[in-house]
């Protein structure tokens, strides 16, 4: 069996008396598109912070890309890609400057970076606006650039935190084309979303409720188990009885 890209065992985070993440155990397989769902306040963000090496857990075990979250958070950060709807690229820089900035951060050599930059701009059809400030570009263009920048250092695993929030339905689907492309190239994708139709595009989905993983399976299996037509119905039947909502 190939090594799991993410593996957690009773991973826990407490803030004072409040247990934000309450002993979650799961694994993500190489090349998988893994949907990480949950209501606002269920503990998703805290869990993601632990998995991306930004927060040390209070208990339990976790390895990400083969590194231990307690001892090797810096190695984790170097081995993963990360993109969030809230922060991804610098609006005041151009696409070219953004690519070079993030390439520099990830320690790519300047010759390699120049070549990669040109190839990326070409592939994304952004050559015409390579030197235009990002702020002036449509959101859909920024997103595909942000996603490519997250993959610039060729990580095996990429975290996408609500990558499609607030985007029109056509752009949203184009973004999922990019996710599928990356996954078919062997990249493991860990994605959060509030669009339940997008949950159906994942290979497997976990649903967090009150700090725990309430369900984890393929969308087809979850719908069967909860006798639901859609993932939206599955989500609502699991998350509605949640006790805490902050």
């Amino acid at each position: 069996m190939p090594e799991q890209v993410i593996h957690t065992d009773k991973l826990t985070k407490r803030f004072g008396t409040f247990t934000a993440v309450d002993g979650i155990s799961f694994s993500v397989r190489p090349g998988e598109i893994f949907g990480f769902l949950g209501a606002n306040g269920a503990g998703k963000t805290t869990a993601m912070k632990m998995l991306t090496g930004l927060l040390i857990p209070s208990g339990g075990l976790a390895t990400v890309a083969g590194f231990d979250v307690y001892r090797e958070p810096e190695s984790i950060k170097r081995s993963i890609g990360y993109m969030s709807q809230r922060f991804s690229l610098y609006d005041d820089l151009t696409p070219r400057e953004n690519i070079r900035f993030f390439g520099g951060i990830y320690g790519l050599a300047s010759k390699e970076l120049r070549e990669k930059c040109d190839r990326m701009l070409e592939r994304l059809d952004l050559k015409g606006v390579a030197d235009t400030r990002l702020a002036a570009l449509p959101l859909g263009w920024k997103q595909k650039l942000a996603f490519s920048v997250a993959l610039l250092h060729e990580p095996k695993l990429v975290f996408l935190d609500e990558p499609t929030g607030g985007v029109d339905p056509v752009t949203r689907r184009r973004f999922w084309d990019l996710i599928y492309q990356a996954a078919s190239g062997g990249v493991t994708v860990f994605v959060t979303t509030h669009y339940m139709d997008e949950a159906e595009y994942c290979d497997r989905v976990s649903i967090m409720v009150d700090g725990r993983i309430a369900a984890l399976d393929s969308p087809e299996e979850l719908k069967r188990r909860y006798d639901a037509e859609t993932m939206n119905d599955v989500f609502i039947s699991l998350a509605r009885p949640a006790r805490r909502s902050e």
Partner: peptide, 13 residues
């Protein structure tokens, strides 16, 4: 103006 952007499916309902 977009009161439910970024809000989970239960809260939206």
């Amino acid at each position: 103006d977009e009161p439910t952007t970024g809000v989970d499916a239960v809260s939206r309902l």
